[in-house]
Amino acid sequence: MRRTTRLAAVAAAGAALSVLAAGPASAGDPTVTDPHVVAHFDFAAGQQAENIALEPDGSADITWAFAHQVARVAKDGTTEVVATLPEVPGGSTPVGGPVALGIARAKDGTLYVTYATGTDKTGIWRIAPGGEPEQIGFGFPANAFPNGLALDEECGTLYAADTILGQVWSLPVTGGEPTVWATGTELEPTPEIPFAANGLKFHNGAVWVSNTARGTLLRIPVGPEPDRAAGPIETKATGLTFIDDFAFTGHGDTVLAALIMDHKVELVRPDGTHKTVLTKADGLDGPTSVAVHAKTVYVNSAAFFTQTDPDPNLLLAKISKNKL
Rank of each mutant, 00 (worst) to 15 (best):
M1C: 09
R2T: 15
R3W: 14
T4R: 15
T4E: 15
R6G: 11
V10T: 13
A11Q: 12
A11C: 00
A13G: 09
S18Q: 13
S18W: 11
L20E: 15
A21P: 10
A22C: 14
A25C: 03
A27D: 14
P30S: 10
T33G: 01
T33R: 13
P35A: 04
H40T: 14
F41A: 04
Q47E: 15
E50R: 00
N51V: 01
L54T: 08
E55M: 12
P56L: 03
D57Q: 09
G58K: 02
S59L: 03
A60I: 09
I62L: 14
I62C: 02
T63R: 00
A71D: 12
V73Q: 04
A74L: 10
A74K: 11
G77A: 12
T79N: 09
V81W: 06
V82N: 07
T84L: 06
L85R: 00
P86S: 09
P86E: 02
V88Q: 03
P89N: 10
G90I: 13
G90N: 11
G91W: 07
G91V: 08
S92I: 10
S92V: 14
T93L: 08
V95I: 15
V99C: 00
I103P: 03
I103D: 07
A104V: 04
K107H: 15
G109H: 12
G109K: 10
G109P: 08
T110K: 04
T117G: 06
T117W: 09
T117C: 10
T119G: 05
D120Y: 07
D120G: 04
G123S: 04
I124L: 06
P129H: 09
G131F: 05
P133A: 12
E134H: 12
I136Q: 05
G139P: 10
P146C: 03
N147T: 13
D152S: 01
E153Y: 06
T157F: 03
L158C: 05
A160M: 00
L165C: 06
L165S: 08
Q167L: 15
W169C: 01
T174R: 13
A182Y: 00
E186P: 01
E186K: 08
P189Y: 04
T190C: 04
T190H: 07
E192D: 15
I193C: 08
P194K: 03
G199S: 08
F202H: 06
N204P: 03
S210N: 11
N211Y: 01
A213G: 09
A213L: 07
R214Q: 14
G215W: 02
L218N: 02
R219S: 13
R219T: 07
V222Y: 03
P226D: 10
D227E: 15
R228K: 12
I233D: 00
E234I: 02
K236A: 15
A237M: 08
G239I: 09
L240P: 05
T241W: 14
I243T: 13
F248G: 02
F248E: 03
F248T: 02
G250S: 13
G250L: 04
G252Y: 11
G252E: 02
A257S: 10
A258R: 04
L267Y: 09
D271Q: 08
G272K: 03
K275C: 11
K275V: 12
T276Y: 09
V277F: 01
K280R: 15
L284T: 03
D285Y: 08
P287Y: 07
V292E: 10
A294R: 12
N313Y: 08
N313A: 14
L315V: 13
A317P: 08
K318D: 15
K321M: 11
K321G: 14
K321N: 11
N322H: 12
